[in-house]
Write a protein that binds this DNA or RNA. Structure first.
Length: 180
DNA sequence: ACGATGATGAAC
DNA sequence: TTCATCATCGTA
């Protein structure tokens, strides 16, 4: 069952926690592969100094100000695409960054997907996905509800990675990690 | 510990 | 138009 647009129109920290354990599905040439979402980060609002949106709207980050459920892709370090999903109502800039997923197929090497750049590379996700809707199957990328419930004790909180410049927001525990 | 690698945004 | 910066990763 695919998560609908309304799922993403909730508080960003809630979306971050609730998407853990859900299934990320990718369809390439009629082949569907599925992965458990295991790690995400929240980039929350105009005041979050770690967020691209903290210095106002630009050509790159304008998707973050858009409707919930839109895909925000950007390139870092000249070579890595980052996969984000926009949260909350239009006009409020926020998104979650997908940092790690785990293949349902146990035969596939998990280590290929345990990083935000590694997973986009594996799934063939690039700038073409920017501004597409993750709640539409024709995008070829969607999220399905949790196959089984998870406990709060399975969710670890941590500081976000690579944002030491973010002042008072540097130490926010806005990174969420799901472990079985 | 460090270099790869290029789009982005702000300054000039 | 230039220039510093960067929500990372693989190799050392």
């Amino acid at each position: 069952m695919m998560l609908s647009k309304s799922f993403y129109n909730q508080k960003t920290l809630l979306v971050a926690k609730n998407i853990l354990g859900c299934i990320l599905a990718r369809k390439i040439e009629n082949q569907i592969s599925k992965y458990i979402i295991t790690e995400v980060e929240a980039y929350n609002g105009p005041h979050d100094l770690a967020s691209h949106a903290s210095r106002g709207m630009t050509e790159r980050n304008k998707i973050m100000f858009g409707a919930p459920g839109l895909i925000y892709i950007y390139l870092v370090y000249g070579m890595h695409y980052m996969l984000n999903i926009v949260t909350e109502e239009e006009g409020y800039p926020a998104a979650i960054l997908i940092r790690a997923i785990e293949p349902l197929d146990e035969n596939i090497d998990k280590n290929l997907f345990n990083g935000p750049a590694k997973l986009t590379r594996q799934l063939g996700i690039n700038k073409n996905f920017n501004n597409l809707a993750i709640y539409k199957k024709e995008t070829g990328l969607w999220v399905e509800k949790r196959p089984e419930p998870i406990q709060n004790t399975q969710i670890k909180k941590a500081k976000r990675v690579g944002i030491d410049y973010a002042g008072e927001y540097r130490d926010k525990l806005w990174r969420f990690i799901y472990s079985k």
